[in-house]
Amino acid sequence: MSEAVSALGGAAYDGAVRVEDAGLRGMITLRGDLCDAALRAAVRDVTGLDIPGQRETRLDAERGLVWMAPDEMLILVPHAEAEERVSALRTALGDAHVLCANVSDARAVIRLSGAGAREVLAKGAPVDLSPAAFGPGMVRRTRLGQVAAAFWMTGPETFEVVCFRSVGGFVFDWLVAASAPGSLPGHF
């Protein structure tokens, strides 16, 4: 069986900040009633994490939960585990009205790291990215330039940016352009 490949094939760039392919990531879209006790329990059983609140993330080294919408959660797992986690969730949730789908290959994940990472994102996202307004534990779905994207922080100076796979190369190139040496505004 052939190995899966990420959309960006390990690309990386060092400029004002580092821009790199974050590689394969298992992702599961879960739509349902996020307040439902059975659903919350099933998610905890399968991921070991509690469902986060509005626009919040719960991340550990390998797994994560990202709040996407009032009825939608993005579950992060190792890529190879995605199918079995989907099955496990479906089993655990039984007949409940939920939608659970493996979307691991539908997206590109780009890691942005460095002191200027906030400023690079703020060149394209119409979001208050000052440390007072956005920090680890939060997620923001918005646009980056002309493309829909979501991002969250995995450390004080590190972001993960997620976009659809078909525009992964475009977003990567955009981030590279926005990370040109000498281009940080020095605002935050």
């Binding site: 509005q54 626009r55 919408a69 009032p70 119409p126 979001v127 923001r140 779905r141 918005t142 646009r143």
Partner: peptide, 11 residues
């Protein structure tokens, strides 16, 4: 009101 974000019109 669904996600609580205050955002500019382009979103």
């Amino acid at each position: 009101p669904n996600c609580g974000v205050t955002a500019e019109e382009t979103e």
